[in-house]
């Protein structure tokens, strides 16, 4: 048998073996979060490469080694879930390198990181001033996780004491001109609703490349034909504007009328509408 046929055969078998091993070990193996998975990952890859091209090597030996590595990684993962101590040992623990804004030199030395390397890692996170960092940990995989001091963190609505409405994830209900039924059901809608919405936008289903529905039941579509302009959903901002207009109208009526009773009624309802505007604004803005 010529060599190249053997190589093709081995490649296929090892590809399959690698695929199955990784599939069983799961997502954790791919992210190589822990020390052990890192070692197993590179070794399994090297074994496969070595055996596929090295014709003098025994095929079965390579396969056995690979399976052993796979099984041990699987076992380590399994025991790690059960025992915290074991997982600390096998998967490694993060090392605190900056605490209360001060560099812990001893821990840095223990991990054999120089100041230059630490500042390079910080720069990767767009931090150029060590004084800005409250807390930083070196993860087992060698990346740095940082917590900035309170005043240096990006501003969030919470800092401004703004009330933000909670939102559900948008569902992709049209892909490539086809309706995807499961997300449509998750969004609590049916095909009938979708056809009505598409008609409102004036597009046909097979012209839509991608369609998403947000948590307010508004449909946004991307068309194959990029020259066609479709309006973005404006229902909610428009509604808010209408409520504001009506509120102003009621205020005017209350000033115009001479009847005391009606004046009081208009005033009361204008106040209610103002309250409604305040409550709905976070939900209706854009």
């Amino acid at each position: 048998m010529p060599d190249w046929i053997i190589i093709i055969g081995r490649s296929f078998i090892f590809l399959l073996l690698l695929f199955i091993t990784t599939k069983i070990l799961g997502k954790k193996q791919i992210s190589e979060l822990s020390l052990f998975e890192y070692i197993a990952g590179i070794t399994i890859g090297s074994i496969a490469g070595e055996v596929v091209t090295g014709l003098e090597a025994n095929f079965v030996h390579g396969a056995i080694a690979m399976i052993v590595f796979g099984v041990i990684t699987f076992l380590v993962d399994y025991i790690s879930i059960k025992s915290k101590k074991f997982s600390d040992f096998a998967e490694g623990k993060g090392t605190v390198v900056i605490k209360d804004g001060k560099i812990l030199e001893n821990n840095l030395k223990k991990e054999k990181y120089t100041i230059d390397e630490l500042s390079a890692l910080l720069r990767q996170k767009d931090i150029f001033k060590i004084a800005d960092v409250e807390f930083a940990v070196l993860e087992p995989r060698g990346n740095l996780s940082t917590l900035l001091k309170r005043e240096n963190r990006p501003l969030t609505p919470k800092d401004l004491q703004m009330k933000m409405p909670s939102e559900k994830e948008p569902q992709t209900i049209i892909m490539d001109g086809n309706i995807v039924d499961e997300p449509l059901r998750n969004a609590g809608k049916g095909r009938g609703w979708l056809y009505t919405e598409l008609e409102k936008l004036g597009v046909t289903l097979d012209n839509v490349f991608l369609g998403q529905v947000d948590s307010y039941g508004e449909l946004t579509v991307d068309l194959y034909d990029d020259k066609i302009q479709i309006p973005s959903p404006m229902q909610r901002p428009l509604l808010l504007a209408t409520i504001k207009k009506t509120q102003a109208d009621l205020e005017i009526f209350s000033l115009e009328t001479n009847c005391e009773k009606s004046k009081a009624m208009y005033k009361k309802n204008a106040a209610i509408l103002q309250e409604v505007i305040d409550k709905l604004s976070p939900y209706l803005n854009g």
């Binding site: 409405p165 909670s166 939102e167 559900k168 969004a187 609590g188 809608k189 948590s215 307010y216 039941g217 508004e218 229902q235 909610r236 509604l239 409550k279 709905l280 939900y283």
Partner: peptide, 15 residues
Amino acid sequence: SLAVNSLDEEAQTLF
């Protein structure tokens, strides 16, 4: 209609 079409429960009640 917003109350019926919204997915978030809080928004539904408010609407």
